[in-house]
Amino acid sequence: MASTFEAVADIIADTCDIERDQITPESHAINDLGIDSLDFLDIAFAVDKAFGIKMPLEQWTQDVNDGKVPTEEYFVLGNLCAHIDKLVAAKS
C-alpha cells in the first residue's frame, strides 16, 4: 500500500498541481484536496495506465449514489489505494 500511495500521490500532485506534501493517506480527494470530477478522470486515466487496471469509477459512483458506501470509501486516498491494490491483485 505504501508504494501504491506514493505513486498515486505523485499522480495527483502532477495532475492537479497540488503540493506533494499536502497529500496524505488521510486526505479526502474532494473535501481536502479540492479535486473536481474532471481532474479525477485524469487521475483515473493515469492510475489505470500506471497500474495496468481499469478503476470501476461508474460502479463506485453508483455505489455512492445508492447510499451503499460513503464517499470516504473511494475518495480518502488510503482507502482508494487499498482498492487499487485489490484490483492489481485480481489482475495477477
Binding site: 478522470l41 483515473a44 486515466f45 489505470d48 495506465k49 481499469k54 478503476m55 469509477l57 461508474e58 460502479q59
Partner: peptide, 9 residues
C-alpha cells in the same frame, strides 16, 4: 487508446 470507466481516450 484507453477505454476507462466513465471516460475514454
Amino acid at each position: 487508446t484507453h477505454d476507462g470507466s466513465g471516460f475514454a481516450v
